Simulated scan of single mutants.
Amino acid sequence: MNKKTKLLAASLTALALFVGTRSNAQSIEKGKLRFGIGLDGLAPVGNFTKTANFGLGLTPRLQYGISNRFALTFTSGIYHFFPKDIYLNSGTQTYKTQWELNVVPVKVGFKAFVTQHIYLGAEGGIGFQVDNGGGDSKYLFSPSVGYASKNWDFSLRYENFSGNGYRNGVIGARIAYGFGL
């Protein structure tokens, strides 16, 4: 991670920790399931900016409250990255190509509420590439900070993709609507 990404992650974590000093009833309930569907905006960082402009994701999430302050999560969906034009020189000719990337993330994680609505989260899992022949997979890890109300969930995260000599990341913003099951 570059210095700007580390600074952003540290700032978001500090903000979440210092916003509230006491814990009240949380946006989750012990033993209850919630389902939410989110829309993600994904901004590439690092070397990823050379091949992708931005990405969009659609991510359903199942959440189970293990206490009034902690929840386990299971998230999947799809990320689509919009490619930049890449020009390759081959002898006397120049070829224009576009790199495609669609990823199906499968992640498990947790949310820990530090105030009634503010939480810190982390997820880990695998992202499966589903275009260009597919078959390639990457390890995913994403720390996050968010705000959750009865029906809405807003979060920011850094998501790292790594594997097969490949390591890149995105800054993601997720807006989700959820309800109890």
Rank of each mutant, 00 (worst) to 15 (best):
N89Q: 14
G31W: 02
V114D: 06
A112P: 15
L17A: 03
T51F: 12
F113P: 11
Q116H: 14
P83T: 05
V130A: 06
T5R: 02
P60N: 05
L181S: 02
G135A: 10
F128A: 15
H80D: 15
L15Q: 05
N168Q: 04
F141L: 10
Q26M: 14
A10F: 13
G91L: 00
P44M: 05
L39N: 00
S27V: 11
L140T: 00
I66W: 01
T115D: 15
I78P: 06
R61E: 04
Y177T: 01
R22Q: 13
K150S: 12
E159N: 09
L156H: 03
G169Q: 00
T115S: 13
F141E: 06
G41W: 14
S67T: 06
L8H: 00
T97G: 08
G91W: 00
I78M: 07
N53V: 15
H80G: 15
V106A: 10
S27K: 05
D40C: 14
R61Q: 12
T75L: 12
D85M: 08
K30L: 07
Q93S: 13
I78W: 07
W99D: 15
T75C: 13
L15P: 05
R61C: 04
I175E: 05
L101A: 11
S11W: 00
L7M: 12
S27D: 08
L156I: 08
G20T: 10
G91N: 04
F128P: 10
N102F: 05
T51W: 11
S162C: 09
F81T: 04
D40P: 13
K50N: 01
A16V: 01
G46R: 09
K84V: 06
